[in-house]
């Protein structure tokens, strides 16, 4: 792990520049695919596909998941390929900036266990909430936000309200 001669990680790019880059990617998605960006759908489809391996009947007869298997495997969906691209694009960018390394990121006084338990619980809530809302910060906030959809703006405001409301209770994890 200790490489004294290794160059330091690069700084992140200017957030406004990164935002414009992200916005142009979203615009390109609008005019070519005809849909915006998304991330939570691929995770849910991955979970459904994995469950299908052990309990195909339970998944196919499920009122919410069943439709995902009607035209073949649930993973045969453009959002799954998009998520694959996100993984590769994120890795290449992190690698080029010398930011790719194994770690559990947390506040200076938080233990690894504390951080991982909250990551798991937070993940469960986010996974559940994304299905309820029909998307996440990608599919609702960015995509629906740029399309001026009122439900997406309501979702985004609720996300900030929930985050600010809960921040005090988990401050030891981060600060």
């Amino acid at each position: 792990m200790n490489a004294p001669l290794a160059p330091a990680p690069q700084r992140f790019w200017n957030p406004y520049l990164a935002g414009v880059g992200l916005g142009l990617t979203l615009l390109l998605s609008f005019v070519t695919l005809g849909t915006g960006l998304g991330a939570s759908g691929a995770i849910a489809r991955g979970a459904a596909q994995a469950t299908h391996v052990v309990a195909p009947q339970a998944v196919e007869s499920n009122g919410y998941l069943g439709a995902w298997f009607e035209g073949g495997p649930a993973l045969r969906h453009y959002l799954v390929f998009m998520a694959g691209g996100v993984l590769v694009g994120g890795f290449l960018s992190a690698r080029a900036a010398r930011r790719a390394r194994f770690q559990v990121e947390r506040g200076p006084t938080a233990s690894v266990r504390h951080r991982l338990v909250l990551a798991l619980v937070g993940g469960v809530l986010v996974g559940f909430a994304s299905r309820m809302a029909g998307g996440c910060t990608s599919g609702q906030s960015l995509t629906g936000g740029a399309l001026l959809l009122d439900g997406s703006w309501a979702f985004t405001m609720a996300v900030f309200a929930g985050g600010f409301g809960a921040a005090w209770f988990v401050r030891k994890e981060w600060n």
Partner: peptide, 9 residues
């Protein structure tokens, strides 16, 4: 989602 976001990071 917001609660899960700040908890999970």
């Amino acid at each position: 989602f917001g609660v899960g976001f700040v908890m999970g990071g």
